[in-house]
Each structure stands twice: as structure tokens, then as C-alpha cells.
Design a protein around this nucleic acid. Structure first.
Lengths: 170, 170
DNA sequence: ACTTTATGTCAGCCTTGTTGACATTCCAAG
DNA sequence: CTTGGAATGTCAACAAGGCTGACATAAAGT
């Protein structure tokens, strides 16, 4: 009787009949939910004159302190020129520190400064708060399903980044 | 033992303990999954010289044939100038037809032409295919949870648009 | 008649994608 | 050792698609 719609009894998890209407509903759910997902950080960012691109950079530099520009590029999926512009303003504004690589001097290792860590916390607090409320409202079973579907929707290459819990700077 | 993490037995759905790490995982799941979600349509759109904005317009005009510009604005959450640019190119290219309203001649009712419907089908086929694969891989329970969490994550005003299955042109 | 509403349009700005050109650094083959 | 190619990061310029503000038009409503 779940909303996932099976035509008949148990064991049909692998033979799911999915109508176009159910799939459209899923598509619009992603569209509308993503707007909510980004709404709170967007407001904070605007106050400080930053955009979503800065948020992404700050988030992943926080998650992988000391990561290289190249690694960030493969996570974010933009061109290095595009990332560089964002990174430069963050560095100029003293939110991110860029240290020349020790082993390979072509690389730059990226770190959040205290100021950068403050912004990151402010942003992720807001975003976590919305996620927490949604998780609470939906319950633990739903949270598990949510994660399963999203994971199955990722491109395989991005799924690797998602699953790499803390690969450090590699 | 679900990944939603409850500290103890049954009945704790309303007292969920959610670690920052679990919430971060949910946040990144949204980020990476949304990229996959838009990847296939983006490729098709690029071939034809359109962007994501055109996709959104075409999608919701298809869903609500005969809708007005104003209704589209409230769904998409952009300015009329921004929507108008997109709409104008779609009309000029013969994908969308704009008819003067019958009751209220100030309004324009928007319809997909056959050419527009063809593009819409091509885009939504691709997107549905990815959604279908993800739903199949995750199973019906997961699909239900996915929808519950996403719905809880929306802003209330957008949730109305989501739930309005076919409000037509109102 | 006057106001409000719905829509369209022009001009200009900002963010954030893109490509192309270029500097620096490293490494490996000669 | 040197030299050429690959990897890395920076600068410049352009395009899409957001935004605001100003203004025109037509149709409703009062």
C-alpha cells in the first residue's frame, strides 16, 4: 500500500510498475524540494554578497581541509576558470587560505580560515536545520528511502564522491 | 537499525536523534542527486540551444495547458522579465503558442505546439527514465520515503503548487 | 473617469557558467 | 642536463539567465 505503487503482493519490489504520473510527481518533488533546500543559505549568502557557487566551494573545502583545486573541480563539475573566480574572491576576502603544495608546488592546498569556518557554520546550520525538520517530519524509514533513491539517481562518478566519507586531500 | 538512526526502540519516530554527520550526508545527497537529475535533459537542451530555464517553462506549460503567465511566475519563482525572455524565444521558435484570454483579455493562455510537445516529451522521457531506474533500484518503500522527505523540505507556498495535481489554469 | 491588474518591453547590472591564451611546475626521454 | 609535454593554476572575454527599475498598453473593476 505504499505510495510507490506495486500492482500486486509481496516480492514485487523488482517489478515495480511506475506510471508516468508517479514519475512526474517525483520529478516535480525534486524541483520544488531543491528550491527549499537552497532557500535558507541563499538568503544568508545574499546578505554577504556571495552566491551559491561560494557556498559549494566553502562546503567542500570544509569537508576536505587541504584539498587541491583539481579535486574540488571533479567534485563540483565546473571549469577550473569558473571555480577560480569564486576561489579568488574567497581568498581575497580572507575566508580561504591557499597554500602552495609541499610535495608538488603546482598544487594549492585549500583551507578555511576562522572567518571562512564561521560562514560555513552559519550556512550549514541553516541548511541542516531544514534537513533536520524534514527528517523529523518524515521519520527514520522515510529518511532511509530518501537516501536510497537519491543515491540511485546520481551519476556513478559523482556517487564515488558522495560515498567517499573522508578521503582527505587525495 | 535504519540509517535514519534512532537511539532506541519503537515509537521514537518523533524523537529522532540526528547527528550533524547524518544531516551533512543528506545535504550532499541532495547536491549530487540533483546534478544527476538534470544531467540528461541538459544534454538534450544544449543540442537545441536551450537551457534549463526553457525546460522548466516547457514542463509546466505541458502540465497546465492554457495556464497564464502569472501562474507560471508563481510556480517558477522568477521575475516576469526573466520568464518573458525565455517565453519569447519559445514563442518565436514555434514551441509555445500564446492566445489572448477569452474571459479576461489581459491574460495570455499558454499552450505547447506540436513541436513544443515533441521537445517536452523528449526531455521528460529522458528524465523519467533516470527517475524510473532510481525508483526501481531503491524499491517502493524507499520511493515513499523519498517523497515524504522532499515534501517536508519544500517551502509551504511551493508545496501548494506541488500538491495541486491539475488545477488547470486557475 | 480613475485605479488597479496583467502583460510585455527596454536598458542595465550581477553571478556563474563557458573557451582561449598563458605562466609555472614537474617529470621523463633523449 | 636539457628539453618537451603534461599537469596545475591564473587572466581575459563572452554568454545565459537571474535581478531591478522604468514605462507602455489594454482590460477590469470601482
Amino acid at each position: 500500500m505504499s505510495d510507490g505503487a506495486t500492482p500486486s503482493g509481496p516480492g514485487s519490489e523488482t517489478l515495480l510498475f511506475l506510471t508516468d504520473e508517479q514519475l512526474r510527481k517525483g520529478i516535480e518533488a525534486m524541483f520544488f524540494a531543491y528550491r527549499g533546500f537552497t532557500a535558507d543559505p541563499d538568503r544568508i549568502l545574499e546578505e554577504q554578497g556571495y552566491g551559491r557557487a561560494h557556498h559549494r566551494a566553502v562546503h567542500f573545502i570544509h569537508r576536505c581541509q587541504g584539498t587541491t583545486v583539481n579535486n574540488l573541480l571533479s567534485i563540483l563539475g565546473v571549469t577550473k576558470q569558473s571555480l577560480n573566480r569564486v576561489l579568488r574572491t574567497l581568498i581575497d576576502d580572507g575566508l580561504v587560505e591557499s597554500r602552495v603544495g609541499l610535495r608538488d608546488k603546482r598544487e594549492r592546498n585549500l583551507y578555511l580560515t576562522e572567518k571562512g569556518a564561521n560562514l560555513e557554520r552559519k550556512l550549514s546550520d541553516a541548511q541542516r536545520e531544514r534537513m533536520r525538520a524534514a527528517f523529523r517530519a518524515a521519520g527514520p524509514e522515510a529518511v532511509s528511502g530518501f537516501r536510497q533513491v537519491l543515491e540511485a539517481m546520481m551519476d556513478p562518478e559523482l556517487r564515488r564522491h558522495y560515498q567517499a566519507v573522508r578521503e582527505g586531500m587525495s
